[in-house]
């Protein structure tokens, strides 16, 4: 498998993960290419979060290799090029949005004039500009999610990893976030996101279907539907899942 190809942003090779006796990921191999939105689709408990955490090195793999931009992970300075948004909002609720943004920007080495500029840009992007000085504890669930996304964009990462990014966000805003993700890919950013929602999965360029820690299929949503002669992605998922069991 190629991992020095600069078009290949993530290369996962035969990754297994065990917790004690329980195998949560079985021999996962996949490639994610530059400037695409790669969706990991699967029900909760299927191993999506474990997989993305292994990608950035927050979770140790039991065997197999992960390369990001040609570098074998985990590697600390690669985190500078990755934006990560976890399932939990992970915000300091006693601080204001601005204080949260300033803190995380500093961790990524974004400072001074550039920092204030980036904070304005990302807050505009997630439509929270007028709430910049508000304490995060007063934010609604959707607002927290958007702020969390804004933080992961601060340092203009080449790779964005989003764990269930649009949970609890209203449909109109979800649409605008997707528009934004598209414009990021247009600038060359690669995005990996996890989802359990079929209609969201359909918007991805390519999809990896995962169930019980096994990668069922990887292709574009349309190709997956066509290959299984299904009419919807859900049917395709059932088809792939069904063959196995």
């Amino acid at each position: 498998m190629i991992n020095n190809d600069d078009q290949c942003v993530i290369s996962v090779q035969h990754v297994n993960k065990e917790y004690g006796n329980k195998q949560v990921l079985h021999d996962i191999s996949l490639n994610v290419f530059k400037a695409e939105i790669f969706g990991i689709l699967g029900p909760s408990g299927s191993g999506k979060t474990t997989l993305v955490k292994i990608l950035i090195g927050m979770e140790q793999r039991s065997s197999g290799d992960v390369y990001i931009l040609g570098t074998l992970m985990p590697k600390l300075n690669m985190l500078q090029q990755i934006g990560y948004m976890a399932q939990s909002d992970a915000l300091y609720t006693e601080l204001t949005a601005l204080e949260n943004l300033e803190f995380f920007a500093s961790l990524y080495g974004v400072r001074g004039q550039h920092r204030s500029q980036r904070i304005q840009e990302v807050m505009e992007l997630v439509n929270l500009k007028e709430h910049l000085y508000k304490q995060v504890g007063q934010y609604s669930g959707g607002m927290k999610r958007r702020l969390s996304l804004a933080i992961s964009l601060l340092h203009e990462p080449a790779l964005l990893i989003l764990d269930e990014p649009t949970v609890g966000i209203d449909p109109i805003l979800r649409q605008s976030i997707w528009r934004e993700l598209r414009s990021l890919t247009a600038k060359g950013t690669t995005i990996v996101l996890t989802t359990h929602v079929m209609d969201e999965a359909e918007k991805c360029d390519r999809l990896g279907m995962i169930r019980d820690g096994e990668l069922l299929a990887v292709d574009s949503p349309q190709a997956l539907i066509d290959a299984t002669q299904s009419s919807t992605l859900e049917e395709a998922f059932i088809h792939y899942g069904g063959i196995r069991s």
């Binding site: 600390l76 985190l79 990755i82 976890a86 399932q87 992970a90 915000l91 080495g109």
Partner: peptide, 13 residues
């Protein structure tokens, strides 16, 4: 709250 995880996803040592 997950902020530790977020901290650890940045290049902080």
């Amino acid at each position: 709250t997950g902020t530790l995880e977020r901290l650890l996803s940045t290049p902080i040592k």
